[in-house]
Computed example of a mutant assay.
Amino acid sequence: MPAPHESGPSAEAAATQDLLDQRLREAAWANDVPRARELVELGADVNATDSTQQSAYLIATSEGYLELLRLTLANGAQVDDRDSWNGTGLIRAAERGHDLVVGELLRADIDRDHVNRIGYQAIHEAVWLGQDTDDYAATLRVLIAGGVELDRPSGSERLTPLQMAGERGYDGLERVLLRAADAGEIARPDAELLAAAASGDADGVALALRAGADPEARDAQGRTALLLAAAEDHVATARLLVAMGASPDALDDRHDTPWLVTGVTGSVEMLETLLPADPDMSIRNRFGGIAVIPASERGHVDYVRRVVATGIDVDHVNDLGWTALLEAVILGDGGPDHQEIVRILLDAGADPSIADRDGVTALEHARERGYTEIAALLEAQDG
């Protein structure tokens, strides 16, 4: 006789769990992290798969959803779970060129050399199924830095990753892999790391990390590799270091951090590169300021426009008693760039009534200097 239909509290609990898990996968596909977080808190399982062997964790890896991936890893993701191709999340991420996800997974101690059902490792998929672009070059560097095998032939083509790049005609990827293939022993990995970072040699940074360099190694001035790269706007180098877990908050002897120096250089691209590392925007430089203040002083319009959108404190007061708005007026030249910065800061909610230590407001400083356009912006705000 057929088994009786299951009913009662256990069946209801299983149905509730299945619904939670399904909704979590739906949130994962939509990259709706707040909703995913709510569902996890309600008991949804980040490892629960559907009929196609997709879980919230595996979805995050293939789609490059870094914040979602971090949520799943923090809530019990089984890092070596396999998809329907017997592939790991590392293989899925490498195939799509998601370098930051690849770095996150390597640092979570995923099986870096797993071979899937068709005989590919992550590095094979990054080359054979990838493109000759900056994203895939960045992904290769992260894999190299993470110590993956470089010379195993693929299952069907019997080609190494380097041979694959040549076969595909991917000159950029071939250069990255050739550099790794030709690398000799690195006697002083930390020193090599710092030198490569300072010069913008991203491939050299990857090889130094592969040889065991500490991403937080420091030079005589207390600068890390990421700070050296950020100060010189070496974006590809910084991108690799961020993927490998380098801190954007490491202070040097001058009380600079990789994040803080972006306010001095005004590099929006470097700002975007560091944001996935979740920089602490409240850390102060040697003048007691945060990144938006030197950027406003120096007239970095595009940077100020982007950084205020991060939620940085636009009313922070430095040790001189000045906000970003005050510095844009007092140390600016009153020209179009500083006019635009004043407009951006006001639109972001900057308080024009905050005065300096002598009780002088930005409006009064603008009038004193004859900055009529800036004064008009501030007067309109007062009105």
Rank of each mutant, 00 (worst) to 15 (best):
D21R: 03
I144Q: 11
D252L: 02
G103M: 12
E185N: 04
H5L: 03
A77S: 11
R298M: 10
T224W: 09
G263E: 01
D135E: 14
P215F: 04
A211C: 07
P2V: 07
E185S: 07
E149D: 14
P2H: 05
H365T: 03
V308R: 05
G370M: 06
A11C: 05
I293D: 07
L331F: 04
L241N: 13
A376F: 01
L90C: 00
A328H: 07
V142P: 11
L178Q: 14
L159W: 13
A225K: 03
L162R: 07
D21P: 03
A348D: 09
L24G: 06
G97P: 03
V242F: 04
S10P: 02
D80A: 10
E232W: 11
R254T: 08
V102H: 10
R284P: 15
D135G: 01
L173M: 13
Q54P: 00
P258C: 11
E368N: 01
G147R: 06
D356V: 06
Y57I: 05
T49Y: 08
R141I: 01
G43I: 12
L325V: 05
D351R: 09
P352A: 09
L207A: 07
M164Q: 15
E6Q: 15
G155K: 08
H98I: 03
Q339I: 00
L331C: 00
P248Y: 04
T160H: 10
A180Y: 03
D333K: 14
L69Q: 03
D109S: 15
L73K: 10
E269W: 05
D151W: 00
D337N: 15
T262L: 09
D151V: 01
L274C: 13
R112A: 14
A60D: 05
W85M: 12
R35Y: 02
A350V: 10
A213R: 11
G97C: 05
E174P: 01
R210W: 04
H124K: 06
V317W: 03
L66C: 12
M164R: 02
L90S: 02
L19Q: 15
P161D: 12
A328E: 06
Y136V: 01
S156Y: 13
E379H: 10
L66K: 08
A60I: 03
A48E: 08
P2L: 04
Y57V: 06
A145E: 06
R92M: 10
D111T: 11
L150Y: 13
P279I: 04
R23N: 15
I110G: 10
E232N: 15
P258I: 09
V360L: 02
I293C: 07
Y120V: 00
T262S: 08
N116I: 04
D214E: 11
